[in-house]
Amino acid sequence: MLLKYTLALISILILFTTSLFVGVGELNISGYLNGSHEQELIMLASRLPRSFAVVLTGSALAIVGVIMQKVAHNKFVEPTTAGTMDSAALGILVASILMPQSSLMAKMLVATGFSLVGSWVFLRILKHLPITNPLLVPLVGIMLGGVIGSVAGFIAYEADLIQYLSIWISGDFSGILRGRYEMLWLTFGLSIGAYLIADQLTIIGMGKNISLNLGLNYRAITSLGLIIVSMVTAIIVATVGMIPFIGLIIPNLVNRFVGDDLRQALPIIAYVGGCLTLLCDIAGRLIIFPYEVPVSTIVGVTGSLAFIFLLLKRDTNV
């Protein structure tokens, strides 16, 4: 057990350190240790914030994914397959148009409201779908996201904000600098919040009847879960942009090995989410060095492949 923890700690430290020293600006360990001022600036203003941002985003997205899977009772649901991400992007767009002078925090709150409404609409639609066909759920969610996305596209086009919208749509860590990412630490707090209600979320995942039987306020826990999901999504879309599939792949990968009891699984999900996103981001920085491939593209390619694998692997019982 101790060995596992040590290995886990060492591997994320290696990844994190790698992330610190990969990039266009000259930064090497010896130079940094020699106390070059320029090197210190790159480290503190760019590399460190970026690496933190990647880990925070990856783990928060993975956690949010598993919360949605519990709330929707479907393991193919996550913010991009439930319209939540698109709703958040629409919210930021609307906030930017209606109150362009407001702070990022205010815009993010509007986005939270939008993604909350989006997820709520999604859950309402789910009530009309048969539980016997679990694939219908992500299908409907992706469509809903598409419709919301096209509304956002329409508004953005008319308001001449397509450029901004595409920044939010395509998740990318290359713009992360000190002073521009700190809000992501909020997702850390929200993840802790999710951990505090881990048992309740697991019970919610067992269905309404069992939840009621165990004396849970089903609606309150569902709402709490959705609020966490919406806030995290809004923060990530506002600071990094949309990143698909992390919330779907990581929980489905982790539960193969450790199951769905969130009290146990949640830290592991967060850990794996952080690590894999770091890996993707480092790969994105290395593949066409000194240029970058945005992380959303890397995750889009690998994540969609993994998703298809998940789908077709179980096609015998669909």
Partner: peptide
């Protein structure tokens, strides 16, 4: 209150097709 009732009455309904991956022990502990 629901949590008070949960210590008074329990119910098992007919279809419990849950998709969660819990071990038997974890389930019983719930």
């Amino acid at each position: 209150r629901d949590d008070t009732l949960a210590k008074k009455i329990s119910i098992l309904t007919q279809s419990n097709a849950i998709s969660s991956r819990l071990s038997v022990e974890q389930l019983v502990m719930f």
